[in-house]
């Protein structure tokens, strides 16, 4: 239990997807102009991460790892399919996003109209694929750990995009040198937020 809490806190603050690894930066910069849409995208990211990561974990553990297929028949005992992981992960992510989109559209039209445009975008959001690749690289041992990691990184991403959107809303009123307006100052603000987030790195868990 304590281990899961550690993974959760770590993936929100110390290994934040945005500030430590720059994942999902494109939509992070493009959709952070108002707090409302940022909240929508943030929730969609948490949602998709929590669904895709455990699925990818199970596929990785029971199909792709060296010898993982031995539950099927002993002759697969030294078959190593891990080189296929990229293509499988991205296919899972793309199809689950599609699936989630259809389910949400069918059952909660209100949520769909607020998330609508963001859901398809998420298929190519690096944070989602990045989550699966980090899961593979760090070798989480149980399904619980993988799911907690997914939830934690999603929440971290959500916090980051909502706070950037809030800052950008206020930024409209400030007098910035013309060439720096818009994109330039946003990058610098994200950099400064990243430095602030780095203060969490001293925490040992």
């Amino acid at each position: 239990m304590q281990e899961l809490v550690n993974i959760f806190v770590k993936s929100i603050f110390m290994e934040n997807m945005i500030f430590a690894y720059f994942l999902g930066m494109c939509s992070f910069l493009a959709v952070s102009k108002s707090v409302k849409t940022a909240t929508g995208l943030g929730i969609a990211v948490i949602f998709v991460l929590v669904i895709t990561l455990p699925v990818n974990y199970l596929i990785y553990k029971y199909v792709l790892l060296p010898g993982a297929l031995s539950w099927l028949s002993p002759q697969f005992a030294d078959l190593d399919l891990s080189f296929l992981s990229f293509i499988i992960f991205i296919a899972v992510v793309a199809s689950i996003t599609q699936l989630v989109e259809m389910v949400v559209e069918k059952f909660t039209p209100a949520l769909y109209s607020s998330l609508g445009i963001f859901l398809p975008l998420i298929a190519v959001n690096c944070a989602i694929l990045g989550g699966s690749l980090f899961m593979q690289e760090r070798g989480y041992e149980t399904l619980g750990q993988a799911t907690t990691f997914a939830l934690g990184s999603g929440v971290g991403w959500f916090l980051a995009i909502v706070s950037l959107a809030a800052i950008r809303e206020k930024l409209k009123y400030s007098n910035i040198p013309a060439p720096l307006r818009g994109l330039g100052i946003t990058f610098i603000v994200v950099g400064l937020m990243g430095i602030a987030f780095m203060s969490f790195m001293g925490i040992k868990l």
Binding site: P179, L180, F187, I188, V190, G191, L192, G194
Partner: peptide
């Protein structure tokens, strides 16, 4: 060496380019 510096550098490059 820290990650945030890369973002600030891009911000500065954009500033130069747009000037």
């Amino acid at each position: 060496i820290l990650p945030p510096m890369a973002l600030i550098l891009i911000g500065l490059i954009i500033w130069v380019q747009r000037s």
